[in-house]
Design a binder for these strands. Structure first.
Length: 293
DNA sequence: CGAGTGAGCGGAA
DNA sequence: TTCCGCTCACTCG
């Protein structure tokens, strides 16, 4: 393949394949982030040309690989936590949430009624579809009242992701309907479409405690993080940090309810239902959204 | 630092 | 009731 073909090919590569390489880069970085690998090192390790990698990062997140490297280290996660700036101020500074808003995706939500919850989704019709996203294949689930589920799958993991999600509401009816779910994808993964005037409608299906925890997550601004123990304190159960972790793990709306912004007290990324690598990718991607303003 | 441990709490079976 | 978890603080080496 000559140079021109190579360039052409990288330009027409759909965004969906970007994440596969990003994933490999992040995995590599997680292994030896201590010695700050150069772009050249990383490119060699994942079998790509440095220029290709450079281009890919720009397209994926709008930032340089160097900035991205910094964004996925432990050090950075720690900084998200403890620069002491009150969250509300931080949010204002980003030109985002005032007190009346839930979070930067401009979500309005309603919790589902106890009856509906206990019936495990009986009578609920859920439309679903898989779509390309910056974090791999995204499974979107929606009821007529709004977005109800968002999950991720690595290549070939679609069936597993669907099983995982449909287990949560076993009695619901599932209808594959990509035309119904596609608009959600566009909206969710494009920050320029996060507009207060047209809030994303979301249904939160969970227990009181879980919904409280998820609401606390939605108050964390883009590009920042909170410790599980801080969230525990915030919902009035200061000793329940582990229960908070469990509730966060049960969040059916990955990314929209930003469970990736919860980290351990030390700044370490302790866990993520859809894979730690994906959590790192999300934090790195968010850091990039901030940097390009 | 790194590994091990027990308290602590909510949810599901 | 029993068991499990996206925790934490504390203990040793």
């Amino acid at each position: 393949m000559n140079l021109q073909t190579a360039i052409l090919q990288s330009e027409i590569t759909p965004r969906g394949s970007d994440y596969e390489i990003i994933r490999r880069v992040i995995e590599k970085i997680s292994l030896d982030y201590r010695d700050q690998p150069s772009l050249e090192d990383l490119a060699r390790d994942v079998g790509e040309h440095p220029a290709t990698l450079q281009k890919l990062f720009t397209r994926w997140a709008g930032l340089t690989p160097k900035a991205f490297l910094q964004a996925v280290t432990l050090d950075h996660a720690r900084r998200l936590l403890d620069d002491g700036m009150p969250l509300l101020e931080a949010a204002m500074e980003l030109g985002m949430s005032g007190p009346g808003r839930l979070h930067d995706l401009f979500v309005t939500h309603e919790a589902i009624s106890p009856g509906e919850y206990k019936s495990r989704g009986a009578g609920l019709e859920i439309r679903y579809g898989f779509h390309v996203s910056p974090f791999g294949s995204a499974l979107i689930m929606a009821t007529e009242r709004g977005l109800a589920g968002l999950a991720f799958a690595d290549e070939g993991g679609e069936a597993e992701a669907f099983a995982d999600m449909s287990r949560r509401w076993p009695a619901a009816t599932y209808v594959e309907d990509m035309s119904a779910t596609a608009p959600y994808t566009q909206r969710i993964f494009d920050p320029s479409r996060w507009k207060a005037e047209k809030p994303l409608r979301v249904v939160l299906i969970g227990t009181d405690f879980q919904v409280q925890v998820w609401q606390a997550l939605m108050k964390i601004p883009l590009g920042r993080a909170k410790a599980y123990s801080d969230i525990a304190r915030e919902v009035g159960k200061p000793k329940a940090s582990r229960a908070v972790g469990a509730a966060i793990g049960a969040n059916p709306l990955s990314f929209v309810v930003p469970c990736h912004r919860a980290v351990g007290k030390s700044g370490a990324l302790t866990g993520y239902h859809w894979g730690l690598t994906r959590k790192r990718a999300m934090l790195g991607w968010e850091a990039a959204q901030l940097e390009r303003g």
